[in-house]
Simulated assay, not measured.
Amino acid sequence: MSKTRNSYSIEFKKEAAQQYINGDESLRKVCARLGIADDRTLRDWVGKVQRGESLEDGRGKGDHPRREQIERVPDL
């Protein structure tokens, strides 16, 4: 059985991270209230917000850091 990956908007991620940063609830409580299945997900978003990094996940995008290397590998 495979797990389905949830996809969250950038706005949702920012709001969720800010609710944890500015609030008095634990990480797990914020996740439960917002329906985020894994607290590692919110922890990652909080870290990115605090470091000023982008919250875009990049899945399915053409700008994967190794994509250029992968595309240059010759067929054998």
Rank of each mutant, 00 (worst) to 15 (best):
M1A: 14
M1Q: 14
S2Y: 13
S2L: 11
S2G: 04
S2C: 00
S2I: 07
K3N: 03
R5M: 13
R5L: 03
N6M: 11
N6A: 15
S7P: 02
S7L: 12
Y8G: 15
Y8S: 08
Y8H: 12
Y8P: 11
Y8W: 15
S9Y: 11
I10G: 07
I10Y: 00
I10E: 13
K13A: 06
K13I: 05
K14G: 02
K14F: 13
E15W: 01
E15T: 00
A16N: 05
A16P: 08
A17F: 00
A17N: 05
A17P: 05
A17R: 00
Q18A: 14
Q18D: 15
Q19I: 13
Q19K: 09
Y20K: 07
Y20N: 05
I21C: 14
I21T: 09
N22L: 13
N22D: 06
N22H: 04
N22P: 00
G23T: 10
G23S: 11
D24R: 06
S26Q: 02
S26P: 00
L27S: 06
L27I: 05
R28D: 00
R28T: 02
V30G: 01
C31W: 04
C31S: 04
A32N: 04
R33G: 00
L34H: 01
G35R: 01
I36H: 08
I36M: 06
A37Y: 06
D38Y: 12
D38Q: 03
D39K: 15
D39G: 00
D39V: 04
R40Q: 12
R40M: 13
R40E: 12
R40F: 02
T41G: 07
T41K: 07
T41E: 02
L42N: 04
R43C: 03
R43N: 03
D44I: 07
W45V: 00
W45Q: 06
V46M: 04
G47H: 09
G47T: 10
G47P: 08
G47S: 14
K48L: 03
K48W: 12
K48S: 10
K48T: 06
V49P: 08
V49T: 09
Q50V: 07
Q50R: 13
Q50I: 04
R51A: 08
E53M: 08
E53N: 09
L55A: 04
L55P: 02
L55T: 06
E56K: 11
E56L: 09
G58F: 09
G58Q: 04
R59L: 10
G60E: 09
K61G: 07
K61F: 04
K61Y: 10
G62L: 12
G62I: 10
G62K: 15
G62Q: 15
D63H: 05
D63A: 12
P65Y: 07
P65T: 10
P65L: 09
P65W: 12
R66P: 00
R67K: 10
E68G: 08
Q69L: 15
I70P: 01
E71F: 14
E71W: 04
E71N: 13
E71K: 14
E71G: 04
E71H: 10
R72V: 08
R72F: 15
P74N: 11
D75G: 05
D75T: 09
D75C: 03
L76C: 03
L76T: 08
